[in-house]
């Protein structure tokens, strides 16, 4: 019997006001696996990430962690389970320096005061393992380049020793070299046994890195693929809706009449 997935979603729904953003979402993420989450703009990818990370909790449905149901209502819940998130808009505090951002919300203290020296030492150590060009640790993050900011954001998510990492478009703003660096990094994290949920528009990245791909369309599941066997055309047509799940949709609409 295969081990229970690290993270599983069943029938997850999310509404914003009158808009159904996510409907009956199913998803399974295993340890040591990169699952790509694909979909056109507005398909609900970022919302799904927010549901899993506790920023925008699900309205309906169950989330299972290693086979047992859990509730994720706040970012804190997700974090204590071992889910770390790197958001598309990075969610860094521009006015704080790199060290301040890395340790935001889990500062190291010494005699009750912030231990800047120890935090800076660990930041340096952590960043040295991730990237070659370490940014100025004491400059405000708003003054860094977007690639450096991405590195800081990923580094921050790794501080809590997570078991699941959610990456929302990690390479969208990066140059070729930096993209390769980030992809290598994700590869290494998979080898360490992390489950990675990778949102990307770049099918090249997905093909190169992911094991499986889940496609969302208009807030619903629209197919699962084994990236190694599925063709690019199959995946794209699933994203654009050329192979929409027609019978189910028809039935749904008929029910509404």
């Amino acid at each position: 019997m295969p081990a229970a997935p690290l993270l599983a979603l069943h029938g997850v729904c999310k509404r914003f006001g009158v808009v159904d953003v996510l409907t009956d979402i199913e998803l399974e993420l295993h340890a040591g696996q990169v699952l790509a989450l694909l979909g056109d703009n507005g398909a609900g990818k970022s919302t799904l990430v927010k549901v899993i990370s506790g920023v925008a909790p699900a309205d309906k449905g169950t989330i299972e962690w290693e086979g047992r149901p859990v509730h994720i209502r706040r970012p804190h819940d997700a974090r204590s389970l071992g889910i770390a998130t790197v958001y598309q808009d990075l969610a860094l505090c521009g006015n704080l320096d790199v060290v301040g951002n890395l340790f935001l919300g889990r500062e190291i203290r010494r005699f009750g005061f912030l231990d800047e020296v120890e935090m800076e030492r660990r930041s340096r150590h952590l960043l040295e393992g991730l990237t070659r060009g370490i940014p100025d640790l004491r400059g405000p993050v708003v003054s860094l380049s977007s690639g450096q900011r991405q590195t800081v954001a990923i580094a921050r998510s790794l501080l809590g020793e997570p078991r699941v990492l959610l990456l929302d478009e990690p390479t969208a703003a990066l140059g070729i070299e930096q993209t390769t660096e980030v992809l290598d990094l994700v590869d290494r994290l998979r080898d360490r046994g992390l489950g990675v949920l990778l949102i990307s528009h770049n099918l090249g990245d997905v093909k190169a890195l992911a094991d499986r791909a889940a496609v969302l369309r208009l807030g619903r599941n629209n197919g699962f693929f084994d990236v190694n066997t599925a063709s690019q055309e199959q995946i794209i047509s699933s994203i654009t809706g050329a192979t929409e799940n027609v019978p189910r949709r028809m039935a749904h609409q008929e029910a509404g009449w």
């Binding site: 920023v55 969610a91 505090c93 006015n95 704080l96 935001l104 500062e107 912030l114």
Partner: peptide, 24 residues
């Protein structure tokens, strides 16, 4: 400048959303 509380104040000034996501 030297306490957890003060760091949270600065963080909120840098972005409420970012601070919230850092579970402050």
């Amino acid at each position: 400048r030297r306490t957890h509380y003060g760091r949270q104040v600065y963080a909120l000034g840098g972005g409420v959303e970012a601070a919230r996501r850092a579970s402050l």
